[in-house]
Amino acid sequence: MLKENRKMAEDWIAPRVREIAPSGIRAFFDLTAGNNDIISLGVGEPDFATPEHVRAACVRALNRGETMYTPNAGLLELREEIAQYLGSSFGLQYHPADEIMVTVGSSEALDLALRAFTAPGDEIIIPSPSYIAYSPIAHLNGGTLVEVEATAEQGFKLTAEALRKAISPRSKLLVVNFPNNPTGAVMSYEDWLPIAEVVKEHNLLVLSDEIYAELTYDSTHVSIASLPGMQERTIVISGFSKAFAMTGWRVGYVCGNHELLAAMLKIHQYTAMCAPVLGQIAAIESLRSGLPDKDRMKACFRQRRTLFVEGLRTIGLHCHQPQGAFYAFPSIAHTGLKSEEFALRLLREAGVAAVPGHVFGSGGEGHIRCSYSTSTERLTEALERMEGFMKVRI
């Protein structure tokens, strides 16, 4: 009976859903669940609680009974704050009324964009390594993924030469994520200039995932949308999860040409309808009064980056210097182990959970991703365990 039920379920599940693999990050996270002896460097989530004044603002709103739906595009008050923030922080200018939409986290914004702009057979170009969600969402919408390797020798940056080689008559969308997950790479204005020229030459639409924009440590974040002629052909996605320590509130946003956003809004209004109202209220408070909190947390991440990356190098794991986000992406190629085998052995033999690089695309093999969004004490202990593992087991 069990086999029969399983066969029925397989028949009902859409082929494209059957074909995608479960999240490689979540798989390692699940292995650590309930085991306090394991130090998890796997999940990309700040270890800070949402600041108290943000939580207090939501408690007051809850006591006032503010528990209803908001407009599909989100509270206009929040969209106005986002517009002001993007203008003052990154030089991006958007009209709050029709060029900004609030979403259920940046993840929903990504899904909406790929659904709205991908037709079966369209090619979606993605630098590799990259965030694991791009590929399966593209696949679900019938798109064909084309990876462009961003190598460690080039600082894990996208180059115009590599992009040009990947373009075909079916190319439609370029997905970029800088600061990058998993490498921590960033792109400067000068880096973006030749990319922008190739994009315009081939009439590509750009989806720019900038969820880590605020966590740029040694320079100022530059959005590709800020380059001449790029804003009208770029969809910018961001949110409050990472820099504002609001992962569980599920508030993201997307900005772009009003006609493109109108297409995304069609899907949003039939699926999520609107982002949670209390999350939107929390986001308003964060933008109005929480910027010092953001800067304080960023300073902590910068200190942890220095500690952890130097520690990795000391124990024999070469590591590119991450310029943003909160991930280190050390090379394990010299060990002779594939990334999955290395990560599994590190977990079982040293009690340290890291994510194997291959889950981030073909360009990630030979590396592991370690999140330094945890305390210095835990990071120091993780390094000690990793050093013992390298000495004894490798």
Rank of each mutant, 00 (worst) to 15 (best):
T216I: 14
N36P: 13
F360K: 02
A57K: 04
D122W: 04
S373D: 14
I100D: 01
N36L: 11
V175L: 14
R79A: 11
N203V: 00
P292M: 10
G24D: 08
L307V: 08
N63T: 05
M390D: 00
T50I: 13
L346G: 04
I125P: 06
V277K: 10
S289A: 13
Y270E: 15
K298I: 12
Y131P: 00
Y217W: 05
A353F: 02
R64H: 14
C58E: 15
A262G: 06
L76I: 12
D111G: 09
F28N: 01
T380N: 01
K3G: 08
M230A: 06
A263R: 15
E387C: 09
V146W: 00
N257F: 04
P276T: 13
A116Q: 00
L92E: 08
P276S: 02
R369V: 11
A56Y: 12
M1I: 10
Y131H: 07
A185G: 05
N35H: 14
Q323T: 04
V206M: 09
C274E: 03
A9E: 10
L76W: 03
I20M: 13
P179H: 10
F308H: 02
I100C: 04
E232Q: 13
G336R: 09
T271D: 15
L379I: 12
I25D: 04
N5V: 10
K7E: 11
A97F: 05
S241Q: 12
V17Q: 03
V277N: 00
A325H: 05
V236N: 05
G361L: 06
A109P: 06
T306W: 08
M390G: 00
Q84R: 15
D30H: 09
L205D: 01
Y69Q: 12
L110P: 00
A282R: 11
T314L: 08
T247W: 03
A243L: 14
V43G: 02
V236S: 15
I394Q: 06
E45M: 14
S371I: 02
F117T: 05
A185Y: 01
T306F: 07
I267T: 14
G290F: 06
E99Y: 01
Y134S: 09
V54P: 09
I167W: 03
I368R: 00
L265T: 11
M8N: 04
